[in-house]
Design a binder for these strands. Structure first.
Lengths: 225, 225
DNA sequence: CGAGAAGTTGAAGCGTGTCAAATGCAGTGG
DNA sequence: CCACTGCATTTGACACGCTTCAACTTCTCG
């Protein structure tokens, strides 16, 4: 359903490039068709925090055009194919396609829930749990979009990226990954992640997938109830 | 504009009570009319994280009824007067009141931005910065709703609450507050916060208020552009 | 084949957490 | 009005998880 509209204007952005920056006037909304991107923010002194990761199928900032300026930046990790959804697209949807509008609202809610779980992660989990949790989340999200094969998925993040996402230093990320490897919880080499036993990884990350609301992709919501 | 609808069903919830809990089926959306509340989540082993604070005028979880179950809980800090907004309310708005619908979407976006700034806070700022930032945010938000008098506001959070919001231990919260007091950045006694020099507090918290999008309350947005 | 980026390692320091006990404060009942 | 209870705040001593710094190694790619 989205595909039809999305096909409109797809462009390719190279790896490690900003799609939009803090302070910009928001224009289009971006749908990630292929590749990985991330939302981040930085302090004056250079400290950076990755706030969310966008995987194929994710919509970056629904409704942003309502705001006067962006309060964060969005950058790519890999080369990314993005569809640019103009404001008119959303107006049209909300005027004539209640089912799709509901699906979009559902997407927004799930993204918010994911961001909250990240806050939980940073506030309450220690390094190992935090890393395990992040890896679980990414694996499960990729699985939902059919981007895993058995217990394997592509994993383009560097250890420096993981550090900015988890609020740890790169050195400690390295040591944490080694610990996870030592316990056979993951294998991570050559931009490829293998999770031999997802349940065990979930347990070490205190990962409870409820917040991803995997029920049935949010399509039924306006139909039922 | 909201008042009219909100007046419908206002009820009072005592302090330190859950309004809704993780796992519940979401029903109504809550508008805080008076008092403070918070969104939180906890791990199996009891660690708790406060994810957001709701002040008078805030709407707790727009559109939640789209989800099958709550992925977090909401509880009160003080006694709270809440208006319960039924699903029908939102349907009505989005059908016939585009301006209000836009204002509601704006509210959602600002809340999301605030939650993201909290992630930034937990991931990148140290104890002093973190605490200073949180106090700045609360002070400014209260100021926006006219709930400050000069440089003073009510402040019902306990140090244990602050600990759960900042991801610090209560002991360290206590020491951090003492440091802030020692530098004359705050005075905090008897549930009252005084900020003698907001600019200095902002600087020590690396606080940049952009993310609150204070421009003009989001009312003009559907009119202009 | 060379150069820069990504990953790895060790040693030392410090910011926060933990534990435990003391103090202060508010509400309750006698 | 005072003793009693329980919660919030404060303090000290100690432990440890994580950061920092700096060097080294291994990959990746032109």
């Amino acid at each position: 359903m989205l595909q039809r509209f999305a096909a409109q204007s797809v462009r390719t952005v190279p790896a490690r490039t900003d799609i939009s920056q803090e302070g910009d006037k928001p224009k289009d909304v971006h749908l990630i068709v292929e590749g990985w991107a991330y939302r981040y923010k930085e302090l004056e002194d250079g400290r950076r925090q990755i706030l969310s990761l966008f995987l194929p199928g994710d919509i970056c900032d629904q409704n942003v055009f309502i705001l006067r300026e962006m309060d964060h930046s969005i950058g790519t990790i890999t080369a990314v194919r993005v569809a640019e959804l103009p404001r008119a697209f959303f107006d049209e949807i909300s005027a004539g396609y209640p089912r799709i509008a509901a699906a979009l609202r559902w997407e927004t809610l799930v993204n918010a829930a994911i961001e909250r779980e990240w806050t939980m992660n940073l506030g309450q989990r220690n390094a190992i749990e935090r890393m395990a949790h992040l890896l679980c989340e990414l694996f499960v999200r990729l699985e939902m979009t059919g981007l895993t094969i058995d217990n394997t998925c592509a994993f383009p993040l560097t250890q420096a990226d993981l550090a900015e996402a988890t609020g740890l230093s790169t050195v400690h990320v390295n040591r944490t990954l080694q610990q996870l490897r030592a316990h056979d919880l993951i294998a991570l080499r050559c931009k490829t992640l293998v999770v031999p036993d997802l349940d065990r990884l979930m347990r070490t990350g205190l990962f409870n997938p409820n917040y991803l609301h995997r029920e049935r992709d949010g399509r039924q919501h306006d139909a039922s109830e």
